[in-house]
Amino acid sequence: MHLTIYWQNFTPVLSLLGGMLIGLAAAILVIVRGRIAGISGILGGLLGVGRSAMPHRLWRGVFLIGLIGSSFIYQFFAPLPQSDISASLGTLIVSGLLVGFGTRMGSGCTSGHGICGLSRLSIRSLIATISFIFSGFVICYLVRHTI
């Protein structure tokens, strides 16, 4: 297959810098709290009603407040970049269900496996990352080029 790079949208420098900031957050969380910065795991653990004692909830809640509040803080420095969301209501629901179910079953998402797991040289996370990127390529192709 022939790859055509979308040069106008390609942002190697900003993406690398943003990625480094994500990595810094993951490093801070493991050094300061001894925890993995996997967003699906942090959210899932926060929601695990009755299974998790309060001290195990607090750091999750605090981290997620910082994450969710980041758009608000960003606006003080620069206009917030647009999020172009083309998915219909039905697609949003189906994709949300798949992401929620899949990340619980697979024990992680792009952050937990893709960033933290790979930087820990975890074979499990490598397999998970290859699996979700492969599946993403296939489903994207099917949805955008065959239907």
Binding site: I85, L97, G102, S107
Partner: peptide, 29 residues
């Protein structure tokens, strides 16, 4: 479970372009 779960996650990721972290940030926006 690791492989099937990750394949399901990737499918959902490709449908809307959201994974958990960015979705929470966009929610905050």
């Amino acid at each position: 479970e690791l492989v099937i779960g990750s394949l399901l996650f990737g499918a959902g990721w490709a449908l809307a372009g959201f994974c958990p972290g960015p979705a929470l940030v966009a929610l905050g926006a």
